[in-house]
Write a protein that binds this DNA or RNA. Structure first.
Lengths: 123, 123
DNA sequence: CTGCATCCCCGGAGATACTG
DNA sequence: CAGTATCTCCGGGGATGCAG
């Protein structure tokens, strides 16, 4: 059977946001703490890291382990299902890495041709 | 070398929007016309289909062929690069299809436990 | 250290109307 | 048929401040 494209939206709604795949990729390396993730993800705010991790936890993709010590220590890691998602996601990441320059070239080319067709201002 | 998670953002910025993967999946079946895509993608507006197709064309993922007839006839198809992207994307779609119910279960479970921990109102 | 609450802004996306 | 042009709305996500 063919892929049902309509399901594609559901998965993208879950991991297609701004940070989820990044978090998944990093947790794929090993279990990490909150601050560790924060440090490794360039540009993410504290709020968005929390929001993203909660969402992934809710979906059964990451686990959250709280150690009752002071100062607090919280560790995040991938569930088995999360690990399988990471494999799928990495396929896309691989594609991105090997085609980004090609895309950039296509864009530059497209933009150049678009400019060439612009109406000439005679005033 | 490991995957560079930061690149993941770039690919998601390109195909992680609301409609791109759907369009790519449908064009993966065969070349199609504008109205044909519009009919097959449930809920997409004319405007968003146009915007999405323009973006994919700009990135070198789809080609746009205009036949100078009346009424106008425009056909869209995947480029070779677009086809490789479809393969990668299908990996994610496959994952989605096989894990959606598991995710739904995880969510229901999470939400149930969250409610159980809510503060009791004694007033 | 880890996280929640609040405010606010911007851009993605829908609705509608018009055109070659 | 295959678009373009506006207007509008909503929510994702950033900044900041407070808390256990």
């Amino acid at each position: 059977m063919e892929h049902n494209p309509c399901r594609a939206r559901e998965i993208l709604d879950r991991v297609g946001d701004k940070w989820s795949l990044l978090v998944i990729a990093l947790l794929g390396e090993r279990t990490k703490r909150f601050t560790e993730l924060k440090r490794e993800i360039d540009g993410i705010s504290q709020r968005m890291l929390t929001v993203t991790l909660r969402g992934l936890e809710r979906d059964g993709i990451v686990t959250r382990t709280v150690y009752p010590v002071v100062p607090p220590r919280v560790e995040y890691s991938l569930t088995p299902m999360g690990a399988t998602l990471m494999d799928a996601a990495n396929t896309l990441v691989d594609w991105a890495e090997s085609h980004l320059s090609e895309i950039d070239a296509a864009r530059a080319d497209y933009d150049t041709r678009a400019r060439a067709e612009e109406p000439v201002k005679t005033s």
